[in-house]
Simulated scan of single mutants.
Amino acid sequence: MRAPDSDQIAAQAATRKIIHIDMDAFYASVEQRDNPDLRGKPVAVGGSAQRGVVAAASYEARKFGVRSAMPSVTARRQCPDLIFVKPRFEVYKSISRQIRDIFAEHTPIIEPLSLDEAYLDVTENLHGIPLARDVALRIREKIKAETGLNASAGVSYNKFLAKLASDHRKPNGQYVISPEMGPAFVEALAVGKFHGIGPATSAKFNALGIFTGLDIRNQSLEFLQHNFGKSGAYYYWISRGVDDRPVRANRIRKSVGAENTFSSDLIEFEGMVAELQPLVDKVWRHCEATGSRGRTVTLKVKFFDFETIMRSRSVAAPVAGRDDLERLAVSLLQAEMPLPKSVRLLGVSLSTLTTVASDEVASQFDLPI
């Protein structure tokens, strides 16, 4: 992150108006909306009582500690009455498009992060509304009216604080962090609450005696860069409430992937190859729909005991076709055979994505299986 000077900081605080919109328990809320029998009950989308992982949890389930990415067995143990529902991704995507259209009525500067989350720059919004908080209220009201779903919003002068603000009054809430509030809001925040700081980095901060935003602010830029590399400058500035990243419209997706948890563990190579086919199909459908191609194929293997390995291969030119993607994925799997344990999940992803003109695409390799 480029370090802004004092004039840039002042200009940023004075002029930028950024909203972070986050749908509340999106997948689970859609299921509760469409099935009245699920309303008010603990719901987990994805997985099953025996296998898989939770893709999303309703707020009723979250009270029991159920979270996304949690193994289904653990979720059921924590919430015996948990109701598992199969995901309906096409429905979620359709609703997401509705929500995106509502955003576009207010600003063309939209940076989607996922189906249920986006940044909006409303500094110069299409309705000329002077206060960003009023823009956020209008957007949330229209989302509710058109979809029946609740959204939370954070409003601030940069992306980092807008993201923090949207979490502050969830669910179905809104919070504004003004330029005057920003530094003080950050200094009381635990490092584990900083967007972009995961459990491992949080533990590293704690081991250095750093527990809050104020603790980070008290460190020199050199100290943070020495201990956290390139991220050190980012931590230095966000601990001061400063983030000069713009909202990037038409944000380019860097990777696309698909994975599946199996009802029974897999042992045989042929069975795994068969299960890779629909995953490859899904990844390639995205590439065809978006005109994107990638150079790095990654295979994900999760064993019965949840140990996970990732294997990648990069090629000189973008992967040209679906069959090439399959050959690369299968060759990565074959290189690991025989696997030491039975397999509960396989995943395939394609990264370093770029947009490639159709006349530039040609098969670049012929890999044996």
Rank of each mutant, 00 (worst) to 15 (best):
Q219M: 07
L346Q: 10
L328W: 04
G65H: 09
K254V: 10
A44H: 01
H226K: 14
E60T: 12
V315R: 00
S94C: 05
M181F: 07
G198R: 06
K63D: 06
P183H: 10
A184I: 14
K41M: 05
F303G: 08
A57F: 03
T107A: 04
R100K: 14
P199D: 08
L276M: 12
M272L: 06
L38M: 01
I177S: 10
L332N: 02
V186H: 05
L126Y: 13
A14T: 03
S231R: 14
R253C: 13
T355D: 09
G229I: 06
A11T: 12
K300F: 05
S331Q: 11
R169Q: 15
T290D: 09
N218Q: 13
V54S: 02
A25N: 08
G294K: 03
R2Q: 13
K17A: 06
A200M: 08
F205C: 01
P80L: 07
D323I: 13
V356Y: 04
S239T: 02
L189W: 09
G241D: 03
P368K: 08
R51V: 08
D359E: 13
D265G: 02
T298L: 03
L367F: 08
E326I: 00
T355G: 05
F306M: 13
E90N: 15
S358A: 15
S6C: 03
G40S: 08
G241V: 01
P318R: 02
F211S: 11
A320Q: 05
I19P: 02
G52C: 09
E124M: 04
P130S: 07
W237M: 14
S166K: 03
M272T: 07
L299F: 04
Q8W: 14
E105T: 08
D324M: 04
I109N: 03
R133E: 12
K254M: 00
T123H: 02
D244V: 12
D24R: 05
V43Y: 00
F228L: 04
M181R: 06
S363D: 15
